[in-house]
Design a protein around this nucleic acid. Structure first.
Lengths: 244, 244
DNA sequence: CAATTTTCATTTGTCAGACATTTAAAAGTC
DNA sequence: GACTTTTAAATGTCTGACAAATGAAAATTG
């Protein structure tokens, strides 16, 4: 694990990369303790603040965790699905907001991914998943519900559908796509008020999942995607009309 | 943008979170210049090294970039798909290697996601995508190909299929899943030598894509998944036999 | 006056040394 | 033996300083 002593700048980035590669290659197993900051500084022939900057880079990616005290130090961190969710959501949200991704493109991707879960979820969903979906449908049909609560319920509904597949890797992949769409979805539900149709389509999905019919679940999701795309288009057209 | 002055520890994490939230909320637009490190230190009432640690955390997530010199500083970075790919691959790889995810679970997720692209790719693939798939099939049929080259070609083939959908959000999501599977896939192809069957299934996929038949593409992917799972099981059984 | 060169101020990158705080193990005490 | 105190090790933070890069302003030159 060495760095190039002739590259004068970005020493902390080089050190971070060296440790990063060591973790990725498996040379540093989970819960392994790294040398202390002072020892690392000596090994890499840099000062302690530089080492610390490198360690903070790794900590930001959840690759290590640090602990104070006598037996403390930096330890290789077991990356958990919950930590990965958060990073995935951040990344997906920024990608959508910073790269002029059209709503149509994002929506298409989201429903394509969700349809990938449909057959698995229809087959394996527990009564608990189904109950959550039914409960969220009921909540969404309440008249007094705020827009924020409606959106949150929407996310919970789709989350239950995805988790029903019983595959944590799929859940992880979908979490980012669904959550990142949330701000865009809000733009629509805050404007166009067509909750009845949405709730009806959600109910169709729940029915198909209850019947354990994967094809019907996928078809219901396609219908919901079409409805969402239509709603979005009408919202965008209304805005275009206003601004001219 | 403030931090809690009463929490003594992890000041850099608090500062990083404050700036992180400001970027996520859109309060700091792309290419906006943050205050200099000295100014940030004064604003947050901490020292410059602490501010620097916070900035390095953000830089590790590609949220900011820094530039030296008179007009330099830290700027909000436009997160590009290429940067996101790298993070996605790192995260997915570590998730699989650190969480005892079974090959069956990872493989199921990967092919489920890939099937999500199948109809879109069959419909929209350009002649270029198709040519890439055909070329990789041909390469895979060459007898002298090393195992490493065969695996790389496999990734390129599936990459072309996914990119054929013409949806960068889908490509981003799939990149991690496919690349992270690569080490696990290597374990199998390095052991079980059944390239003919794999190439035949790849050719089936290319045929279905050429015919722009989404359902046939999905079906061919399902066949390839079944073959992969079967291969994996035989490999694991052989290993279990050896060790006892 | 215009073009070029030089100077300079600003900002990040790095270093050295110091002190505070946390933590667990070791030593001491009843 | 159980409890308390001490101690050492490690991270967290601060101060002050210098180096290096870089663009802009000032000085110089044709």
């Amino acid at each position: 694990m060495k760095i190039d002593p002739n590259s004068p700048a970005d020493l902390s980035a080089q050190i971070a990369k060296a440790i990063h590669d060591a973790i990725m290659s498996g040379a540093l197993p989970v819960d392994e303790r790294l040398p202390s900051e002072a020892e690392l500084a000596e090994q890499f022939a840099v000062s302690r603040p530089t080492v610390r900057e490198a360690l903070k880079r790794l900590a930001a990616q959840s690759l290590i965790r640090t602990q104070r005290g006598a037996t403390g130090g930096a330890f290789v961190n077991r990356l958990r699905f919950e930590d990965a969710y958060a990073q995935q959501i951040t990344t997906s949200t920024l990608l959508l907001s910073m790269n002029d991704v059209s709503f149509a493109t994002a929506c298409e991707a989201r429903y394509a991914l969700e349809r990938a879960c449909a057959p698995l979820s229809a087959q394996r969903r527990t009564p608990d998943h189904l109950a959550t979906m039914r409960a969220e449908c009921f909540r969404q049909s309440q008249p007094g519900l705020t827009d924020e609560a409606f959106c949150a319920s929407d996310v919970a509904f789709h989350r239950a559908l995805v988790d029903g597949a019983g595959n944590p890797v799929l859940s992880y992949q979908l979490a980012g796509a669904v959550e990142a769409m949330q701000p865009l979805m809000n733009m629509i539900t805050f404007t166009a008020r067509s909750r009845e149709r949405i709730v009806a389509l959600h109910t169709d999905i729940a029915d198909a999942v209850e019947a354990q019919d994967g094809a019907a679940t996928a078809a219901a999701l396609t219908a919901l995607e079409a409805e969402t795309q239509m709603l979005a288009q009408s919202v965008f057209e209304a805005r275009a009309g206003k601004t001219k």
